[in-house]
C-alpha cells in the first residue's frame, strides 16, 4: 500500500524524486500479518502430528522398537549361543548334567524374593524364559527367532517396494496391450495358492528360510501391484503429467519422479499391512515344518517345540507366542495409524 502511495507521490513530483535507501527495505513486518491459527505445514509434518496423536499407533511403534532392540541385543545379553546346550559338571556323581526343560531360573530375582541363593547345580546360571527340552536357553532362542521375523518384515518391504510397486505402476501407466497382458499374468499368479507354490518349491529347493523368502517373493507383490496400478490410473490423466510430458519427460521419469511421490500414502499403508501377513506366513510355515530348519530357529518353530510339550511344560510356548502376537498386533496398529495419518478424512480433522 504505502509503496504504491509513494509511487504516485513520486510521479506527482515530476521526476525530481531521488530514491533513498529506505525505499528498498522490505515491508514484511509492517502490513502483512502471518496467519498463525491455520499455519500451513508440510505433508510429512502433518502426517507425524496425526500419527503421534493416535495412542494405539504410538503403542504399536513402541512395541516394534522394543522388539527390534531386544532382537538386536537380546542374544548377546547372556553367554549362551542359540544352539548351545547348557550343561554343568556335577562333582558328586562325576557326570555332565544338561539343563533340560528348566523353568525360568533367575538367581537375582530368587534372592530378592526369598533372601537365599539357589542351591541347585545351576545356581550361577540365569535362564529368563527357562530352557527347552534339549537344554538350550529360550531367551536367546526367542530373540534369535524374532530376528528371523524382522528379517522377513524387511524382505517384505523390499518385495513390495521393488517388485509390486514397479509392476503396478508400469502396468497402469502404459495401459493397452501391456496392461492387459500384465493383468492376465497377475490374475494367474493370484489364483495359485501360496501353499501350492511352497509345495512345488520344496520339490527342488532345500527347505529353510530361503524357501520361505522365495515363496513370499512369488506371491507377496500382488496386493501391492494392484494398489499401485489403481493409484496410477487415478493420477496419470492429470494435467501436471501432461505438462511434464509436453516438456519432454520420458516415461521412466514420469512414472518414478512425477507419479510415485503422489502415490506414497496408499503404498505405505499397504506395505504396513502386508508385513504382519508375511511374518505370519513364515511362522506358520515353520510351525508345520516347511520353514526354518534346525539348529536355527524362528518364532514359528519355537511355537512348534512348545506345542509338542504343551501338556507337561506349558511355559515353553508362552515367550514365542507373546513375541509373535505382539509383533502382529504392533504392525497392525502402526498400519492403522499410518492409514489415518496419511489420508485424513475431513470429519477427522
Amino acid at each position: 500500500m504505502s509503496r504504491k502511495n509513494k509511487k504516485t507521490v513520486s510521479e506527482a513530483a515530476v521526476n525530481t524524486y531521488v530514491p533513498s535507501a529506505e525505499d528498498f527495505v522490505l515491508d514484511v513486518n509492517r502490513d502483512i500479518t502471518t496467519d498463525r491459527n491455520f499455519a500451513s505445514q508440510g505433508f510429512w509434518k502433518g502426517v507425524c502430528t496425526r500419527f503421534f496423536k493416535n495412542t494405539r499407533a504410538v503403542i504399536g511403534l513402541v512395541i516394534i522398537v522394543l522388539i527390534i532392540i531386544f532382537a538386536l541385543i537380546g542374544p548377546s545379553l547372556n553367554q549362551y549361543g542359540y544352539s548351545d546346550i547348557v550343561s554343568v559338571y556335577d562333582e558328586e556323581t562325576g557326570k555332565e548334567i544338561t539343563a533340560r526343560s528348566m523353568p525360568p531360573h533367575i538367581p537375582a530375582l530368587h534372592k530378592l524374593f526369598t533372601g537365599e541363593d539357589y542351591d541347585d547345580l545351576f545356581a550361577e546360571h540365569t535362564f529368563i524364559f527357562g530352557t527347552d527340552s534339549l537344554g538350550r536357553d529360550l531367551w536367546t532362542r526367542v530373540w534369535y527367532g524374532a530376528r528371523v521375523s524382522l528379517l522377513i518384515a524387511f524382505v517384505t518391504i523390499f518385495i513390495d517396494m521393488i517388485v509390486g510397486m514397479s509392476f503396478g505402476l508400469i502396468s497402469g501407466f502404459f495401459g493397452g496391450v501391456t496392461d492387459s497382458f500384465m493383468q492376465r499374468f497377475v490374475e494367474i499368479a493370484n489364483s495359485i495358492p501360496r501353499l501350492v507354490i511352497v509345495g512345488v518349491l520344496a520339490t527342488f529347493m532345500t527347505k529353510g528360510i530361503g524357501l520361505v523368502i522365495v515363496a513370499l517373493l512369488l506371491t507377496e507383490w500382488i496386493g501391492m501391484s494392484k494398489i499401485a496400478r489403481a493409484e496410477m490410473l487415478k493420477i496419470k490423466n492429470m494435467e501436471y503429467i501432461m505438462a511434464s510430458r509436453t516438456l519432454g519427460a520420458k516415461s521412466g521419469r514420469i512414472i518414478f519422479k512425477d507419479v510415485l511421490p503422489n502415490t506414497i500414502g496408499p503404498i505405505i499403508t499397504q506395505m504396513m499391512f502386508s508385513i504382519p501377513t508375511a511374518i505370519f506366513t513364515e511362522a506358520f510355515l515353520s510351525f508345520v515344518g516347511v520353514g526354518i530348519m534346525l539348529p536355527q530357529c524362528s518364532v514359528g518353530s519355537l511355537i512348534e517345540d512348545g506345542f509338542n510339550n504343551i501338556t507337561t511344560l506349558p511355559y515353553q510356548i508362552l515367550p514365542p507366542i507373546l513375541v509373535l502376537a505382539f509383533l502382529m498386533l504392533a504392525f497392525n496398529f502402526v498400519g492403522d495409524g499410518l492409514r489415518e495419518a496419511l489420508a485424513p478424512r475431513i470429519e477427522d480433522m
Binding site: 504382519p276 506358520f284 510351525f287 506345542f307 504343551i310 506349558p314 510356548i317 507366542i321 509373535l324 502376537a325
Partner: peptide, 14 residues
C-alpha cells in the same frame, strides 16, 4: 486380526 489363528487354537486346546 492380530493373534495368529494357531496360537488361539493351541490355547483352546490347552
Amino acid at each position: 486380526v492380530c493373534i495368529p489363528s494357531y496360537v488361539f487354537m493351541i490355547f483352546l486346546q490347552y
